[in-house]
Computed example of a mutant assay.
Amino acid sequence: MSRSIAQQSVDELGGQSSVLARQRRDHEELDRLMHRYASGGLHAAERQKTLKEIFQLTFSHAFAEETVLWPALRRLAPDGAELTARVEEEHQQINELATRIESTEPDDPRHDELTADAFALIRQDIREEEDVLLPRLQEVLGHDGARLRRLGTTWETVRRTAPTRPHPGVSRRPPGNALAGVPLSAVDRARDALSPPSPRTLWIAAALVAACVVGAALRRKR
């Protein structure tokens, strides 16, 4: 198996635009934000803003993995199903913890306890991806830089339009996550902008879900 992607050069990863390099940059940014949150030098409002940034990146990143990368790994590697099941369970646990965190006030002692648990899981997830899943994906793709870059472009496109909030009730796999992703992303990003989603936004989201369901049904029928 290939070395951890944490130990490889950008060229070995397939270049700056490869999916492996993009993944590692996100992991580094998450690590930076988690250290910033735990530093103790932030005012309460800035601390909560940092936590929000951590979760926005965590959930959009994980959604793109579950939509683009893990299906490819299951398709290409005999052990792909086993490897991705484990990391999807971690993603589910992080979703559930984040939901509980959102239900507590920042001055509630449980808030920091739950946040520490979530950060520990995020770091565990990063280690498993960088040491096991992503090197395995690199191996089955034959270290093909062009394929890694194409996969990176697809992954980045999905990440930039993915939900940014915890949704523990949504499937971790296609097509369930993809069907829910478009409307959830519209609502999440409206909430991130500090304005509640308008009735029009919700109507459009519902229409998109219906269109996705009908489209999937037609494709199955054909």
Rank of each mutant, 00 (worst) to 15 (best):
T58K: 02
T58M: 07
F59R: 00
H61N: 02
H61V: 03
A62M: 11
A62K: 05
A62G: 14
F63E: 08
F63D: 08
F63N: 04
F63W: 15
A64N: 09
A64E: 01
A64F: 01
E65R: 00
E66S: 06
T67V: 15
T67D: 14
V68I: 09
V68R: 03
L69G: 09
L69Q: 09
W70C: 07
P71S: 05
A72Y: 12
R74H: 08
R74W: 07
R74S: 15
R74P: 09
R74F: 06
R75S: 11
L76G: 06
L76V: 10
A77Q: 07
P78Q: 05
D79F: 15
D79P: 06
G80C: 13
G80F: 08
A81V: 15
A81G: 11
E82G: 09
E82I: 11
E82M: 13
L83P: 10
L83D: 04
L83S: 06
A85S: 12
A85I: 03
V87S: 06
V87R: 02
E88G: 08
E89L: 11
E89C: 09
E89H: 14
E89R: 14
E90T: 08
E90V: 06
E90H: 07
H91G: 04
Q92A: 15
Q92R: 11
Q92T: 11
I94Q: 00
I94V: 12
I94C: 04
I94N: 00
I94P: 00
N95H: 10
A98L: 01
T99K: 14
T99V: 13
R100F: 00
R100W: 04
I101R: 00
I101M: 01
I101F: 00
E102K: 05
E102N: 13
E102I: 01
E102W: 05
S103E: 09
S103H: 12
S103F: 02
S103G: 06
T104S: 13
T104C: 15
T104D: 13
